[in-house]
């Protein structure tokens, strides 16, 4: 039976991605790694994304608080605003929104950069120079996204909560100490740890998809654009799929 074109394309792409991931795992355990390049990528990927993540995190916390207040007021539980916002940000909104912003900035950047290197033969030149381009370009970037996204999420959560604190004070008065006391009083390890663990998977997905699309880029400059675009779309979709799976797992483990 002949598979429909789209399904066969999907299966071929999935198989190709699986091989790419298995090559990543193999290269990851090679004794000779490009640690200097990894540190550089952590800076480029992590530190240079901080401003964008920080601004979006701040707005997210502020807007969420302003949107939630009328609903809570109607039920007479306005005092629970810090608790509600804290839980929403730390458990779900912080990790997912940070990952989506990160995917938009980093996954497309990696896809375009590696795609451009591919079509201008720079990856071949690395191979000829005796440097393993997969380890130099892919392993360092995927590791950097995996390590940096949880750190950025923690920072984003903190800035979001500060935004929320300002939001609470627009139509009321709460001290910073009291606000954070209320937030942390209700937060438990089962709120924080699963959220942090899933950001590791988000980071890995963003890095590996960006690298996969860029590394396999074809058809000249048009292909570079398509790689960058596909990297954002697929990694964003994967963030939601991973989120769905982790929620199911934490539910099964009784952590929700």
């Amino acid at each position: 039976m002949k598979l429909p074109v789209n399904l066969s394309d999907f299966l071929r792409e999935a198989g190709s991605l699986s091989l790419f991931v298995s090559r990543f795992v193999t290269e990851l355990f090679h004794p000779r790694q490009e640690w200097r390049q990894f540190v550089r990528q952590c800076f480029v990927i992590g530190v240079q994304s901080f401003a964008l993540i920080g601004i979006t995190g701040f707005i997210m916390g502020l807007v969420l608080t302003m949107q939630l207040r009328p609903s809570l007021m109607s039920y007479g539980v306005e005092a629970q605003l810090p608790v509600m916002v804290g839980l929403a940000i730390v458990r779900e909104i912080g990790p997912v929104i940070t990952a989506l912003i990160f995917a938009g900035k980093i996954s497309s950047g990696i896809g375009a950069e590696l795609g451009s290197m591919k079509v201008t033969e720079q990856i071949d030149a690395m191979e000829v120079s005796g440097t393993n381009p997969f380890r130099y370009l892919v392993v360092t970037r995927v590791l950097a996204t995996t390590v940096m996204l949880p750190i950025l999420t923690v920072l984003s959560d903190a800035i979001s909560l500060y935004g929320s604190y300002l939001g609470v004070n627009i139509k009321g008065h709460t001290s910073l100490t009291l606000f954070f006391f209320q937030v942390f009083q209700t937060l438990t390890y089962s709120d924080v740890l699963p959220a942090m663990i899933k950001t590791l998977f988000f980071g890995f997905a963003i890095g590996i998809i960006g690298c996969y699309k860029g590394y396999n880029s074809q058809k000249g400059t048009e292909g570079v654009g398509k790689s960058a675009n596909a990297a954002v779309v697929i990694s964003s979709l994967l963030i939601f799929i991973i989120d769905l799976i982790t929620v199911q797992i934490t539910d099964l483990l009784g952590l929700n």
């Binding site: 451009s116 290197m117 201008t120 033969e121 720079q122 071949d124 030149a125 000829v128």
Partner: peptide, 10 residues
């Protein structure tokens, strides 16, 4: 090996 596109690292 001299590449057609030069392949200098941007």
């Amino acid at each position: 090996f001299l590449f057609q596109s030069n392949a200098l690292y941007d």
